[in-house]
């Protein structure tokens, strides 16, 4: 791509490589620490002896294994639904001539800032009969106003000459969307797909509020309970002196590792889409 690198340019490259490498390392090391601790039984600062007990324990608990399944399920279905709904809406809103567009955008923006809160939302979910159903983990967060607004911006940057010429050839809106806009916005779709997936994977609050049956809990609920139980972090049961179950540091960390890995693995598959240049040349009008 860059054909005649100058001396300065090469110096910049070396420094940049080194710098980013170091930054990457600094960001990755603590995760290594988490992984190491997960193989240790004792609550020391540095892991001492190696053990697989923590992982054996986790996989022996019925709820944990089941919850991974629930999480995978809601992430797959939820991401698909979210991305589809968001992309369709964002695409329509990217037409500058669409009557009412500005009003709808303002309406969307408004919801980013003003939220009704916990109890009214609970009533909506209840009245739609979604309580204790896995739908309550996907539908209440179906479209993120934030992602919608940014995705619309991506769609707007698609060269409109392409769209125009296609239209003149008699192409339907759906053809335009499927054959021109979506392929050109693949990096953005990959990015927002990832955001949605991670968002759904990481959510626990809706599950706590809407799900009663333990067999429908996603993994984050279990993770949170274990991490909170062991750290006495945010939770406040209001009873001092009540004995609570105790987890060692190792189990805590092992749960973090096991519940994080599945979603982390998704990344490299999506990465190639937003790490590469657009496929402008390959699009046929």
């Amino acid at each position: 791509m860059h054909t005649h690198p100058t001396k300065l340019s090469r110096l910049f490259d070396s420094v940049n490589h080194l710098f980013l490498g170091l930054v990457g390392l600094a960001m990755f090391l603590p995760f290594v620490y988490v992984v190491l601790t997960s193989f240790s039984t004792q609550s020391t600062v540095w892991p001492t002896e190696f053990t697989l007990d923590t992982y054996k324990y986790i996989f022996s608990t019925a709820t944990f294994v089941k919850s991974i399944g629930v999480s995978v399920y809601i992430t797959l279905i939820g991401t698909t639904l979210s991305l589809l709904t968001t992309a369709l809406m964002a695409y329509s809103l990217s037409y500058k001539v669409l009557p009412g567009r500005s009003g709808i955008m303002l309406m969307v923006l408004f919801t980013m800032l003003f939220q009704g809160g916990l109890i009214p939302s609970y009533f909506v979910v209840k009245n739609l009969h979604m309580l204790d159903s896995t739908w309550s983990l996907m539908i209440p967060g179906l479209v993120s106003a934030f992602y919608l607004i940014v995705l619309r911006d991506f769609f707007t940057s698609v060269p409109h000459e392409l769209i125009e010429s296609a239209k003149i050839d008699g192409a339907h809106e759906l053809t335009v969307l499927l054959r021109i806009v979506l392929p050109l916005s693949l990096p953005a779709l990959a990015a927002f797909g990832l955001f949605y997936a991670v968002g759904i994977w990481n959510q626990y609050f809706n599950a706590i509020m809407y799900i009663n049956s333990p067999e429908k809990w996603p993994v984050q609920v279990i993770l949170r309970q274990i991490v909170l139980l062991a750290s006495g972090g945010l939770g406040d049961s209001g009873n001092s002196g009540e004995s609570v179950a105790y987890y060692g540091q190792g189990v805590k960390m092992a749960v973090i590792v096991v519940s994080t890995l599945p979603i982390m693995i998704v990344y490299p598959f999506l990465q190639k889409h937003f790490a590469k240049g657009a496929l402008l040349g390959s699009v046929k009008g």
Partner: peptide, 26 residues
């Protein structure tokens, strides 16, 4: 633009049901 509006429909429905209806809680 009926098609564009049709594309928006599920999203709009979502915003009304899950974002605007609860607003009365304010």
């Amino acid at each position: 633009y009926r098609w564009l509006y049709a594309f928006m429909l599920p999203g709009l429905l979502y915003f009304i049901l899950f974002r605007y209806v609860p607003l009365w809680g304010l």
